[in-house]
């Protein structure tokens, strides 16, 4: 596409070219403004048969199935699926904790790559793309639109995004659930360093609004391994009080707490039917996105 003439550091054209072969599909019917490649909750005029329905006065006579009438002497209308485009809402966490990265790439850089690539791919297949940068509030909100100029705004927003402030992700997600019209694809890119119970609540809210919720959970390898040896003063990246600890003393308890938290998070996403992806920052984001897109495509084939 020629909409993005400014070189974006977080977009790789070769990655985009390779991932373009796989469409971005939703898991549930979407409500779009124009025809697209996504299932719609309404019947339409696509080539894909949906069902037979008894004729009622007012129906278009052109849709009567004359073969059925000839065999059964009854009037049936043949209905087809409607295809529409989707509204892709990219919700990117820009709180202070997103600035952490021990592998040379910070979490927010990784989020830019994921969100930018997804937005580009969606826009390319005619879907509307929006962006919400969130921390303790919605810092920037771009409603989904499908024109290329809007994509540039989205990419600009991603580029200008800086990690800062505390995270109030559950509250922000509740707000977005109400703000974004029903049946959209909500892609959340965050470290999710909040209480899983609160997340369950907002995930339920989003599901109630019939959104297709995708979560890319970004974790740093150092956060998983906690491989420190010397006494360390840990500075809270979200502005909290620093903490002086001997890592050797608390490593086992840290691992316990992390494991418990991940277990609770997994239970939450399983209960709420969230498309959840745990991503370590040392992974190639192209592979992450490829697995995501392919899994979507294969699910669509089985519907």
């Amino acid at each position: 596409m020629s909409t993005d003439r400014v070189a974006r550091t977080f977009l790789d054209s070769s990655v985009l070219a390779r991932l373009a072969a796989v469409p971005l599909l939703s898991r549930r019917p979407m409500t779009g403004g124009v025809s697209g490649r996504h299932e719609s909750p309404h019947r339409g005029s696509s080539v894909e048969f949906a069902e037979y329905r008894k004729y009622v006065p007012g129906d278009d006579l052109r849709r009567l199935d004359w073969r059925v009438y000839g065999r059964t002497d009854r009037n049936y209308v043949k209905e087809y699926e409607a295809d529409t485009n989707l509204r892709l809402c990219l919700v990117v966490d820009s709180s202070g904790s997103m600035g952490y990265g021990s592998t040379g790439m910070t979490r927010i850089d990784y989020a830019r790559r994921l969100a930018g690539t997804l937005g580009f791919l969606a826009s390319r297949q005619g879907d509307a793309v929006g962006l919400s940068c969130v921390a303790d509030a919605i810092l920037r909100h771009l409603p989904p639109r499908r024109n290329p100029a809007h994509l540039r705004l989205v990419l600009d927003g991603l580029e200008e995004m800086r990690p800062h402030g505390t995270s109030r992700l559950p509250q922000v997600l509740h707000e977005l659930a109400e703000t974004v019209p029903q049946r959209a694809m909500i892609v959340i890119v965050s470290d999710l360093f909040v209480d899983p119970g609160e997340l369950a609540s907002c995930f339920g809210h989003l599901r109630f609004r019939k959104h297709d919720v995708v979560v890319f959970h970004l974790l740093d390898p150092q956060e998983m391994a906690f491989d420190f040896r010397r006494p360390t003063r840990f500075l809270d990246m979200e502005g909290g009080s620093p903490l002086f600890v001997d890592p050797l003393d608390i490593a086992d308890r840290y691992a316990q707490a992390l494991s418990a938290w991940l277990g609770a998070l997994r239970s939450t996403v399983l209960e709420q039917g969230i498309d959840y992806h745990r991503v370590l920052l040392d992974e190639d984001y192209e592979k992450v996105l490829a697995r995501f897109l392919i899994s979507r495509a294969s699910t669509r084939g089985r519907r």
């Binding site: 904790s97 600035g99 006494p231 360390t232 500075l235 979200e238 003393d249 707490a257």
Partner: peptide, 22 residues
Amino acid sequence: RQRFQSVPWAAMMFLLSAQALS
């Protein structure tokens, strides 16, 4: 104790929880 290192850290919730536990 005077030779500690300072590290910016994101996952403070686990540190706090671990310290409370131990």
